[in-house]
Write a protein that binds this DNA or RNA. Structure first.
Lengths: 201, 201
DNA sequence: CATAATAAACCAACCGGTTGGTATAATAAT
DNA sequence: ATTATTATACCAACCGGTTGGTTTATTATG
């Protein structure tokens, strides 16, 4: 008996290949055969680890979001003491992340949400949960900033966090269509400018 | 001989059905058979009007964007004299449009851009063109507003228009995933607040 | 030996697209 | 005005290929 199914390197490889393919081609356009070929495995092997393509989809989604989440938590900006600096660091980090040619300039989460929300309700729910989760992480820094820089202000940090996610996803989408990554930076700069008016009066 | 192929009611029906199906299910998840069944026609008929599914995709995209475009041009807000009021009218109009249960709260343009940019380069180009076109329309009002309310300001109305499109598309995406249309309104309210700081000092 | 991992062959359903053909109606020739 | 011609509109059946998924068997491994 080999070690448990859960963390097999083969499963990891299937996940990673699926992530790569689905991030660039989307879910529907990526076939199981394609994933198997990329991983140098056969379908029998694939269905040994994932009972269906949809289960794989969910796993890939979690896999992607978890890694994004960890990238943020481990990034240098996240350790900054001053919440306002940390807040701006957040934006700069995202700009750099999507500017870097080493990374894909796609968001698999946004991709899945757009493509599968109407046809795969369970995946839609999962996307919604991940969006909420990511917004909450941003909201923490936002709340700290508010407490320090604009404690009196009437400001809905919840909806502002959602707004941030929307700006990010929207600009990624636009950048992809126009093949111009600069759009992400410019759009986030406008968002930063908005934050400045809220916290630097 | 009936009148030319171009404006046949049958073709119109295929287009409209394709739009409906693709707007909710996406491009890949919508089969030609499905469209034919919805239109009460057969595949032979379909391929008489469209040489391929991709050609249909392009036609549906243009069909959707043209109607969106006309909705804006014909909306009451668009006739307002004061550019600032027209600018705000723009935002309110979008909020109402996507709040109304009669309309789909999806954007087919955003959907296609997300789903097909990497696999269908010609459709990607078309999406980019439409985005540019819509941004330019917004920019006109923006430029007028700037001229009247903040002529001295150093303000990149081009990138601000792109930012608007990004906010719109991003919030639509988020609203879809979370099944909460209120997100669009809240996000556009933040954007409006940002515009206020630029033009109402 | 028992169990998990991988492979190979296979399957029914479905995909986009083609075929050959018919019905219809406008045009041209008589 | 009647007929022959031609182009369009539409359909039912079908095609080869691909899809997600299964089955059965072989190979490793503990």
């Amino acid at each position: 008996m080999r070690k448990a199914n859960e963390h097999s390197p083969t499963k990891e490889k299937l996940l990673e290949m699926a992530r790569q393919l689905m991030q660039t081609q989307g879910y529907s356009a990526t076939s199981v055969d394609q994933i198997c070929e990329a991983a140098g495995l056969t379908k029998g092997s694939f269905f040994h680890y994932f009972k269906s393509k949809e289960k794989l989809g969910k796993a890939v989604l979690d896999y992607y979001v978890l890694s994004s989440y960890q990238m943020i938590l481990e990034a240098p900006f996240f350790k900054k003491k001053d919440p306002l600096h940390r807040l701006y660091g957040y934006l700069d980090f995202m700009v750099e992340r999507f500017k870097d040619p080493a990374n894909e300039s796609n968001c698999l989460l946004g991709n899945f949400a757009q493509e599968l929300s109407d046809t795969h309700p369970e995946i839609r729910t999962r996307c919604a949960g991940h969006f909420t989760h990511l917004a909450e992480l941003f909201k923490k820094t936002l709340d700290e900033t508010k407490a320090s820089y604009a404690p009196e202000a009437r400001l809905d940090t919840q909806s502002l966090s959602d707004h941030f996610i929307a700006v990010l996803e929207g600009s990624i989408l636009l950048a992809k269509a126009k093949q111009d990554k600069g759009i992400i930076e410019k759009s986030l700069r406008h968002f930063k400018q908005y934050l400045k008016t809220l916290f630097e009066k």
